[in-house]
Design a binder for these strands. Structure first.
Lengths: 214, 214
DNA sequence: CCAGAGCAGTACCGTACGGTACGGTTCTAT
DNA sequence: ATAGAACCGTACCGTACGGTACTGCTCTGG
């Protein structure tokens, strides 16, 4: 059926997709991460997922392997809407960017994203682990990849003149601003409803004003 | 001499300024924090600072007290230039903002700031500790306080129409963008020399373009 | 010169946790 | 039906670290 039920028991956790059961374990880890940050024990994971510690170690190698698998699992779950219209009117362009911005803000202010980024940040800086790298790849860098084709279309239609570097940096800054770092530092004053829509709207307007100047 | 040499031995570490010797200890902690993040032991602090663990506990209460004192000590060291000209020509206004932006970028990409923010981020989320709160207050919130009088002057001179909330969020976003989160996640591709000047320049130009629209 | 306090250095204690071993049970493939 | 593997639950081990206790040394005030 799935590779985790084969005799050889998932040889390398980094290459194979997690089985159903493994996914349950990883979701348990995500829960614990939201609740306790980095301070959960392997025993608590085993208990929460109703599995044995031995199984955890057989499947994921060690604690860091479990964390890595969890981060990758979450990354695989977050898919951003990818609208790629071939013809691009200004209204559609702006709406696309607004949706993108809103979606992004919702993701980075979510419990799981905050927990994951806290984990990655606190583990970054020591070699031995690739957590920071992975979150970096699946955060800003992936967003950039998804944004670039939209920028390209906008550029083609004459709405935008800046290069990808500048455009992305500007867009990121206007949309995210201090939201993420404040969330990571524990600021809870961001949960005003409708806040995200207001911010997305303004950010895209500002972005257009900047990139649309002749 | 100073209160730490009195008989009562620094009753509450949160209220009194650290003595010379205490400052040496706190600087040792900062060093260790840069080197090993959050994973240094009290024993390693004692060794590095050539003091006894007992002294650490007498002065700072417990590990969290030591971390808190360290964060506050560093915060007290970082003073941003505070130029407040009473008359404000456009050139001076823009130059002031550029210097502010450059200084800020230099701070947040520095080793110590990164280590401190990593620490605060990883400790945020659990009650029991105020580290996130403290870094938040001494990071974005202090920057905002320092920026507001400058904004006020600019507004008075007609260079800027946005309210403080919008102006600060916009300025922060354009200046910092993804720099800080990438640094915290371990991205080292930011050390290009002259980078900061380029970014500051562009950010302020963009800021003026946005806030200067009639 | 002496009394007393603070401190460095070190030994010590309790605990929590990463990682392993093992007995008993369930599932599967033949 | 049965052998064998995976797996759960739990007991176990070693270690690392937070926090305390103890022993002298040093410095200061009288």
């Amino acid at each position: 059926m799935n590779d985790a039920t084969l005799l050889k028991t998932a040889p390398d956790s980094e290459t194979s997709d997690p089985s159903k059961r493994e996914q349950e374990v990883l979701d348990a880890v995500l829960d614990l991460m939201v609740e306790e940050g980095d301070r959960f024990s392997m025993a608590s994971v085993a208990k929460r997922a109703s599995c044995s510690k031995e199984t955890l170690y057989r499947w994921f190698g060690d604690r860091d392997g479990l964390l890595t698998a969890t981060v990758q699992w979450q990354a695989s779950k977050v898919v951003m809407p990818r609208l790629d219209p071939h013809r691009l009117e200004l209204g559609v362009f702006k709406r696309t960017l607004r949706e993108f911005a809103g979606n992004w803000l919702k993701v980075i202010t979510g419990d799981v994203s905050i927990a994951l980024n806290r984990l990655a940040v606190s583990h970054a800086g020591n070699r031995e682990t690739r957590l920071g790298e992975i979150v970096l790849e699946n955060g800003p860098l992936t967003m950039r990849q998804r944004l670039e084709p939209i920028f390209a279309l906008g550029r083609k239609a004459g709405y935008l003149t800046a290069d990808d570097d500048t455009a992305f940096r500007t867009f990121f800054g206007l949309v995210v601003a201090d939201t993420q770092i404040r969330a990571l530092l524990g600021d809870t004053s961001l949960q005003a409803p409708g806040n995200i829509e207001t911010i997305s709207q303004r950010a895209v307007d500002q972005f257009m004003a900047l990139c649309n100047q002749t």
